[in-house]
Design a protein around this nucleic acid. Structure first.
Length: 783
DNA sequence: CAGTGAGCGAGCTTCCGCTTGACTT
């Protein structure tokens, strides 16, 4: 028999709250939603006014059992899920599934986990808000209808197992459209002029010409005029400026900054933050709110005043402007503001420090700057040089934290200018014009995609990371680093009397961990845009949210909203199934000059291929990594058919060079050897070089080997330390066993053990759900 | 990990948002 049962969503939260409430209250967690639409089938009864068919989720059966038992004996049940659409629905599902009674069930909400907030909530219970619950049901049903009606169309018309959805399809579209912008980008050449001058007192002044020069001739003319010119200060303007701190972290801004400053992936940030949350070091990490509790603001103020002085403190409350924000939680902040560092692994320490500094900085004074702009007139030309200086008068929050920007290398520095006055004469030291090219818009990183999604109101803090994983697992996009191309650039230098031309090399287009669309991503995006334009519209979610708000306000019936959407939507499903062709994204490139047969690209069973001819004489070649069907040229496609190229024989076996998924390789006696990047060209490599590469690989393999037993068991050094290799199977060596002294018997015992594990693992997987399968797939892709 | 790409057909795939572990390498 218990007095009070309080149910919250998260177990970590339950623990904290139990502390605040004392013995009279038993606090349990529902672990999020406990019930959902039927896993199989549509789960929505279209015929009967879209009646949802709910079932308790498989992994929540035990939770429900426990809660039900407790609820039976409790005098009062307090439903304390979050105060947002999903939280209200969780409360309602709990009420239904646990068969609670209205007279002893109370709904309470709090936005911050402080004692005051919780006691206040207990003092002001309310009933479940049915309108808000209905808004959630509408959201859920809408997403199910979109996902489960469109995906099967893709299975029929494009490829099995593909998926489409309100959020993921638009996320892919963003990446596809950006790629096309880049492909269609018209690069412009220009010259940028910078100058170094000296004052009468020999102080150095660096300045640049703000105007871009469109071509070489133009630039030379300007330099010529500089040669004959005198330089003098024509204007000095000094202005005070202030910079304000950024608001404390939300999920999205934390993901962005952890990506920029720490190099974390979006999901890595979330799992590290989860650990910090579970150990009570930070507040909840899935939030869209920048709100801070009064307690947090007060204690931040105390810490700042004590460590830095009162003038560094400025208490601020921030307002959330994000589209569709629901603000059920606080911003992400340290639980205790007087803890600048915490225990934990390296990642936890780093992420905590970031959160700590950002939160404190948000409660600090503005930075005060003095910006100076100086124009330097060129006597023989109307175009001036401009020098800018920035001096920090008072560092304020900058002492603690500075937000990074997505534009790399655009960091402003504290540049000090010497004292300059109007009409001061300056003598030129060196004037340099550098050839430049305008840059295409940047590809998305995981974090910048999250930023964009948040701006469009697509997805929620709890789904940003999983959505990015999903669209990669489906093969719509890839995250890759690509090497850029070196390019020779011209530099014109005016020093003394002469103008010298120099050349230097710079890398263009290098990409680090950026998101690229695959051919499949492009084909599916085009297919969906052609047939389901509404859903692919960037405003679709925003418009749906408006309708959901109406439902939440009680101004509209949820079934009515779904009905208005469904009729035309289902019509387009039927039409697409009936009228559209199977879509492989086929594109005709031209004719093969050798045979005169047509050459085309399309998505085949194993991915994108190029094809020459048809019928008996048909020939296929896979596209290379990084090549897209949309942009590949006839010449590049013809190049693919030159492989595999036979080079000759070595040790009486054939040596051939080919191009595979991981780049160019040499094949000899069923052994594959990669070509050396930057050195070997698959089109021209000789037998001699190929043999040298084979020998190198053999040498490497020998070094890898720790021990070899007579019966073919090998002890090898691998990426994860020493392991046993036998019959192409690998087996880990436990940490407490020394690889060098391993005997044959011990090795065999380990292999036998590994075999057992595999067997039982396989059995489990076979009977497991589809989820296990997709995890396996992911592993393969990463490996 | 890297030569593949026919055709048939059974049985399966899929959404978004709330939550944690349970799994390997």
């Amino acid at each position: 028999m218990i007095e009070n049962l309080v149910i919250v969503e998260s177990p970590a939260k339950a623990k904290t709250i139990e502390h605040f409430l004392g013995k009279e209250y038993t606090v349990k967690s529902s672990f999020g939603h406990i019930r959902d639409l039927e896993k199989k089938d549509l789960g929505v009864d279209i015929e009967h006014n879209f009646q949802p068919k709910y079932e308790v989720s498989a992994d929540k059966k035990n939770v429900v059992k426990e809660l039900k038992a407790l609820a039976k004996t409790a005098k009062t049940v307090w439903l304390a899920s979050d105060e947002d659409r999903e939280g209200e629905a969780i409360a309602w599902h709990l009420f239904e599934v646990l068969q609670l009674k209205a007279e002893n069930t109370k709904r309470i909400v709090f936005h911050e986990i402080t004692k005051d907030a919780i006691l206040n909530a207990i003092a002001h219970p309310r009933a479940i808000n049915t309108d808000l619950v209905n808004a959630q049901q509408a959201r859920r049903v809408l997403d199910r209808l979109v996902g489960f009606e469109i995906s099967p169309v893709l299975w029929k018309k494009v490829k099995p197992s593909l998926s489409a959805g309100r959020v993921q399809s638009v996320a892919v579209k963003l990446i596809v459209e950006r790629e096309r912008e880049i492909n269609h980008f018209n690069e412009q050449e220009y010259y940028k002029v910078t100058g170094c001058f000296k004052t009468a007192g020999q102080a150095e002044v660096k300045a640049e010409v703000m105007e871009r020069f469109p071509n070489r001739e133009n630039t030379l003319n300007f330099l010529e005029s500089c040669r004959k010119s005198v330089f003098s200060v024509s204007r000095v303007e000094t202005k005070p400026a202030v910079r304000k701190p950024a608001p404390p972290f939300t999920t999205s801004t934390l993901q962005q900054e952890a990506s920029r400053k720490l190099g974390f992936s979006v999901s890595q940030t979330m799992s590290v933050a989860q650990k910090l949350y579970e150990s009570g070091k930070i507040t909840y990490m899935r939030t869209d709110s920048v709100h801070l509790s009064d307690l947090a603001i007060r204690s931040a103020k105390a810490v700042i005043c004590q460590t830095l002085g009162e003038k560094y403190s400025k208490s601020r409350q921030y307002a959330t402007h994000t589209k569709g924000a629901q603000e059920a939680h606080e911003a992400i902040r340290p639980t205790y503001m007087d803890r600048p560092a915490v225990e934990g692994d390296r990642n936890e320490k780093q992420l905590y420090e970031l959160i700590y500094k950002r939160t404190l900085a948000s409660q600090m004074a503005d930075a005060e700057l003095e910006k100076t702009q100086v124009d330097i007139a060129v006597s023989e030309n109307r175009i001036p040089f401009t020098a800018t200086g920035e001096v920090i008068v008072f560092d304020g929050f900058l002492r603690m934290y500075k937000e990074s920007s997505d534009d790399e290398g655009d960091d402003e520095k504290d540049t000090l200018l010497p004292a300059l006055h109007k009409d001061d004469r300056l003598s030129p030291v060196e004037i340099t014009a550098v050839q430049q090219y305008t840059l295409h818009p940047p590809r998305y990183t995981e974090a910048s995609l999250v930023k964009k999604m948040e701006q469009l109101g697509i997805g929620r803090p709890s789904t940003y990371a999983p959505t990015i994983t999903t669209i990669q697992n489906r093969g719509y996009i890839v995250r890759e680093s690509r090497e850029g191309k070196k390019r020779e650039l011209e530099q014109l230098v005016l020093k003394g009397e002469g103008i010298k031309t120099q050349f230097f090399k710079r890398t263009f287009g290098a990409e680090k961990k950026k998101l690229f669309p695959s051919d499949m991503g492009m084909v599916v995006t085009d297919f969906l845009s052609a047939h389901f334009a509404d859903i692919m519209n960037y405003n679709f979610t925003a418009q749906a949210e408006e309708a959901l708000d109406n439902i939440a306000e009680g101004d509209m019936e949820w079934q009515k909203m779904i009905g208005q959407f469904y009729t035309p939507f289902h019509d387009s499903i039927e039409k697409t199934l009936k009228n559209s062709e199977r879509n492989t994204g086929e594109r005709l490139l031209g004719t093969d000059p050798a045979s005169g047969e047509p050459i085309s690209v399309r998505i085949g069973r194993f991915g994108p291929i190029a094809q020459i001819g048809e019928g008996e004489t048909v020939r296929y070649a896979s596209l290379q990594n990084g090549q897209l069907m949309e942009t590949i040229t006839l010449e590049e496609a013809l190049e693919l058919f030159k492989f595999p190229r036979k080079l000759g024989a070595f040790e009486e076996k054939e040596v051939a060079v080919g191009i595979g998924r991981f780049g160019p390789y040499i094949k000899h006696n069923n052994v594959f050897v990669s070509l050396k990047k930057g050195e070997d060209d698959p089109g021209t490599i000789t037998l001699e070089t190929a043999v040298a590469r084979i020998e190198e690989k053999r040498e490497n393999d020998r070094n890898r080997q720790i021990k070899a037993f007579d019966n073919g068991i090998l002890i090898l050094n691998g990426r994860f330390g020493p392991y046993i290799s036998y019959n192409k199977k690998n087996c880990k060596i436990p940490k407490n066993v020394k690889a060098e002294t391993l005997t044959l018997e011990e090795a065999e015992a380990l292999i036998a053990k590994e075999g057992e594990k595999k067997e039982s693992g396989k059995g489990g997987r076979r009977s497991g759900s589809g989820k296990a399968k997709s995890t396996a797939k992911t592993k393969k892709g990463e490996g």
